[in-house]
Nucleic acid binder design. Structure first.
Lengths: 339, 339
DNA sequence: TACGGATGTGTGAACGTGCACACAGTAGGA
DNA sequence: TCCTACTGTGTGCACGTTCACACATCCGTA
């Protein structure tokens, strides 16, 4: 069986031979060191003549550094399709890694098969670290990363996360509380919530903040529980709430996409927003300004979250130990028209 | 300067020593060959005791195969944030590569700095091939890939694409023509278009199809030209068209996101859809069913496009030469409520 | 008995790189 | 004169893996 050889590529040997120098000198041209002007010139012309590109796999093997960092998106199906947030986090992380001359490679995990392959990939020396987004409690990838002791940073923090792994996120409890209070201050009496993703810390915490804000006025009957942060869930959740209590006059949606869905359900039911019902969202994503009326929401600094996670990795690569515990970024309220 | 050593990891040597065997036997346990049951057992316990994971960088160096394929998204800023299509293409490609036990790694190119680094990465032996999405005419990445003669597949085809590089896409001209004809058949007289991305083949071809469908009825004054396939562009483009000709009664939007924006502008202008104005989109993305009314549109088989691109790569890796020219996937019309 | 094949195992040489070391020549100061 | 410092270059080794080859053993058969 003959392996298909994609391309016969020049190596340091070939360059050295063509320039009449030794491998060491070629290496010094590439990585710095004492090289005479003539030698450098000869080697550089040889490199461009032969179209030399260094083999990073060999370099990674020798240096134990690949200059690449993985961005692992778990169960991104709905995320990529409905939640613009993860895109922003990715772009933020990429920008920060790019400045440090690291390549971000993002890996998608959808199936068990993917999990295993990604684990192999992460442990294989192709990357120096990993940013993990949207891990659920008991996610097998958490164990894999702990076992490998690969430099890592999580976005959000599953409760069973290893103490030594740093994370970055937002204060979901506090932000949810703040936006709920805004709704209450506006004079709303019957305030409900469309809670989502209660298998993740973000979902649990947003519900906790909502509950804390209302205190004794909290009514468990006014909480609709939907699986995902997406538009369709918003429509369904809002219909549900309207059925349970037609006198509802305020809704906190766990995401902007959900809020957008809720607006549709309210429109169908003939309720005006913000006249009859005040609606607030969460994320300040592109959804927020697309809606009619535009959403009052919690700004989630997605780009900063991404770049912050990247910094956590870069710091570990410099040998610094990250502060234990997490880093929480501020989340200002954004007041628009929906409440 | 001491390099931060993330982890002292076991190698085949260590396993061999622990099991009282030689490296070769360990390799055979991993890659198949004649191994006695006792030897296999001893080595397997040694592997699990020492927590052995093979070093892919070393394997890639030796085998000249990394079992990884890059997914290069060019200028994804607006793509990731506004266009759910690219997410679907990614997931489709990942699924296909996953079945063939290849890791998909996606790379984001936003700046010139990114282009250079990605080029280095692609040529460095970390990946066996590359899927390139959303390349513009004269994109430097095209040259890089041609020069490397790295197995590649493009999604869409910039006109200056190397003849030898296969691509996958849809018949933008034909689909645009078909949906425009649907609009005309419905009895609309003054039909306009919100054309976008006229610096890419997709944008140019959709406009060409529109023009072909209308024939002599085509009126250049009823074409609004916007830069991107996003919601905001749709709002602007529609306002523009209404101003140019208030009697307009049909609109072909170059994407669903644009169509959604157009719906908003029409609502603001007090026009009913489909009563006063018929609107059709393109993509059949999540936008299409989120709108009020839901969009009549062209179904773009994004997942299939992704998996098809993946197949093109896998075929090249098996040493087969791909058919020159491209592969076009069918794009059925989806009739909903907006026209 | 001798031979060929199947099965099982060890050894050496690569893959392409970077670094430590060795060595050579020059210059300056004690 | 000798020692040191600096500049410039070549060589050997290691990174962790796989593969080709050599070798060893066992069995069935001519």
């Amino acid at each position: 069986m003959s392996r298909p050889q994609p391309h016969k590529r020049a190596t340091v040997h070939d360059i050295a031979a063509a320039a009449g120098m030794s491998r060491g000198t070629v290496s010094r041209v590439l990585n710095g060191g004492y090289v005479s002007a003539e030698a450098r010139a000869a080697i550089e012309t040889a490199m461009s003549d032969l179209g030399y590109v260094p083999n990073n796999a060999a370099r990674a093997l020798k240096m134990r550094r690949s200059q690449a960092v993985a961005f692992v998106a778990l169960e991104p199906h709905s995320l990529f399709l409905d939640d613009p947030n993860i895109g922003s986090i990715m772009l933020g992380a990429n920008a920060a890694l790019s400045l440090a001359d690291h390549q971000m490679v993002s890996l998608v995990v959808e199936s068990a098969r993917d999990t295993e392959r990604v684990a192999r990939y992460l442990s294989g020396g192709f990357v120096d670290g990993a940013i993990v987004v949207s891990a659920r409690t008991k996610d097998p990838i958490i164990r894999v990363i702990s076992d490998l002791s690969l430099p890592a940073a999580f976005v959000g923090h599953p409760p069973d996360l290893d103490q030594n792994i740093p994370f970055v996120g937002i204060d979901n409890v506090g932000s949810a509380r703040a936006i709920t209070e805004h709704l209450a201050t506006g004079g709303r009496r019957r305030i409900g919530m469309i809670a989502a993703a209660l298998d993740r810390d973000s979902g649990i915490d947003r519900l906790a903040g909502f509950r804390a804000a209302l205190g004794p006025l909290f009514d468990a009957d006014l909480v609709a529980d939907v699986p995902h942060y997406d538009y369709g869930s918003g429509v369904k959740g809002m219909r549900d709430l309207l059925e349970r209590d037609p006198s509802i006059d305020g809704v906190f949606a766990a995401s902007d996409a959900i809020a957008a869905g809720a607006l549709e359900a309210l429109r169908d039911a003939g309720r005006s927003v913000p006249g009859d019902v005040g609606v607030v969202g969460f994320d300040d994503s592109t959804w927020a300004v697309r809606c009619q009326p535009q959403l009052t929401t919690v700004h989630q600094p997605a780009k900063e979250i991404g770049s912050c996670a990247a910094q956590l990795i870069l710091r570990q690569l410099r040998g610094e130990h990250p502060d234990p515990g997490g880093q929480l970024l501020p989340t200002p309220l954004v007041l628009r028209d929906s409440a």
